[in-house]
Design a protein around this nucleic acid. Structure first.
Lengths: 115, 115
DNA sequence: TATTTAGTTAGCAATAAGACTAAGTATCTT
DNA sequence: AAGATACTTAGTCTTATTGCTAACTAAATA
């Protein structure tokens, strides 16, 4: 994947990884604690964690044999910003979309999905 | 992919698809118009478009031989909401994270990446 | 010191994702 | 009617993702 947003959205596309984020949002946790609610094998789970770390969404610190993970704010904020930006742009155009819809309704014959 | 957010984030993880959203944010466009700035073959591009449509991010109407696409707001709003929600939760905990950071700094010996 | 605990590494199998070419269909345009 | 235009469909290939098991290391604990 190329940039920050690619890897961020890619990371968030998996339910296991989103669940980890949801858990970490309410405070740091060890790998075992994060793994507990998930049925998959630990190594599989670790790989999800690695995806989150590589993307910079999660940071971790190992003390003794325990690795503690926590959220890093920046990537989520960036993604939220991108979405907000898109929304601003298209909401400024909603009037035009509306006009298009009316135009189509009047000219008839429009299809809504693949024929 | 399981739910709405899975498919939304999955869809947004690709730069071509994000570019399409960025283009459509400023107004509807035909398949050819959307395809023009991208180097890939049309069928490949169409598949990206299909991903966006399947996810409900884009809607299209075919009139004659031209298919016109436009953005559907709901999925972006939902994703933005999820991100905002996570952020609210963890921002309410930033004091704790800060405390953790200080604690770690004091107890030393913490590592920051895979050993 | 022996065992358990917590995480790590390595390697494999199945599926999904992304890109291509080639060929087809339905509309315009001339 | 013939040709160009705007998609569509079908089929193949390569790489990435997601899951597994087995075996390993380092740090507690009994």
């Amino acid at each position: 994947m190329t940039n920050q947003l690619d890897s961020f959205f890619g990371a968030m596309a998996d339910p296991t990884r989103r669940a980890v984020i949801e858990r970490l949002a309410s405070g740091p946790a060890s790998v075992s604690e994060l793994h507990a609610p998930h049925q998959m094998a630990l190594p599989t789970f670790m790989r999800h964690l690695k995806v989150l770390e590589d993307t910079g969404i999660v940071r971790s610190i190992k003390k003794g044999r325990v690795r503690t993970c926590h959220i890093e704010a920046a990537p989520l904020i960036e993604a939220q910003g991108w979405l907000a930006w898109q929304r601003e742009i298209w909401e400024g155009r909603l009037d035009r979309l509306d006009a298009l819809a009316h135009h189509i309704a009047k000219t008839e014959n429009g299809e809504n999905d693949a024929p």
